[in-house]
């Protein structure tokens, strides 16, 4: 199973060092935080908006927002219901919480203007050619279309977990949910994705509504690109 590249993840001690130095205006530390989080943040944005152009702009805006506000970031301990101190993964969770809200705002603005997500032709062309169309590999387009079919809570968990590589704990903190709830959402989300994608492949009528919605949405997205 593919895993996030090791360079994407910082150890808690290293991350804390970078964050503390960045809060003091250390440019090198800011750059290191950027390097560590950009790939995951970009992947998250890409699967949220479905095209590289918007994903690039959003990732940049989010970084400016997060790193510009890092002076005010506080490492705060947390306790569970029994009053026991619990481990937190605050910075990454804080970053993706901001990212989530920022992308939500983007979608609201986009919806108000009536624009629809455009598809980057190059993404499809780049990730697979005709020979691969018969394989079960997904493209960014298909991931984007599929996750849009999920209920919002499941979609957020799926994207944070698999597009951004956040852990269960980080995802829970970013979304303000209990880790068990995140696990359940993850499980249900993957079940639904499996059903949706498998039915599209096999042309099954077992979940005809899902298949039809998926294909209609995919054609809508492609049509927007052609326009």
């Amino acid at each position: 199973m593919s895993e996030p590249p090791p360079s994407d993840r910082l150890s808690p001690a290293v991350e804390r060092d970078y964050v503390d130095r960045a809060r003091g205006g250390d440019q090198e530390a800011l750059g290191l935080l950027y390097d560590a989080y950009l790939p995951r943040l970009y992947r998250y944005c890409l699967t949220r908006v479905g095209n590289e152009t918007d994903a690039e702009d959003l990732a940049e805006e989010i970084f400016l927002k997060v790193l510009g506000a890092i002076d005010g970031f506080q490492w705060q301990p947390a306790t569970d219901s029994a009053g026991q101190r619990i481990e937190r993964v605050p910075f990454g969770a804080w970053l993706f919480r901001i990212a989530h809200n920022h992308v939500v705002s983007f979608h609201r603005r986009t919806a108000l203007r009536g624009a629809t997500a455009e598809l980057d032709e190059r993404i499809r062309d780049h990730t697979r050619g005709p020979a691969e169309l018969t394989e079960t590999k997904l493209t960014i387009e298909e991931v984007f279309v599929a996750v849009r079919e999920l209920p919002e809570a499941q979609r957020e968990v799926i994207l944070l977990r698999f597009a951004s590589g956040l852990s269960i704990a980080e995802t829970a903190e970013a979304l303000g949910k209990h880790p068990t709830n995140v696990k359940v959402l993850q499980h249900k989300g993957v079940q639904r994705l499996k059903r949706l994608l498998a039915d599209v492949e096999e042309g099954s009528s077992r979940t005809a509504r899902d298949v039809e919605r998926f294909e209609v949405r995919r054609e809508q997205v492609r049509g927007d690109q052609r326009d």
Partner: peptide, 23 residues
């Protein structure tokens, strides 16, 4: 096992997106 394959299939395209020259 099937769910694991689905999770992997969802994760993989994103990883590829950050390996391009353009990125």
């Amino acid at each position: 096992a099937s769910l694991l394959r689905t999770a992997d299939a969802v994760r993989e395209p994103g990883l590829g997106a950050t390996e391009t020259v353009a990125f």
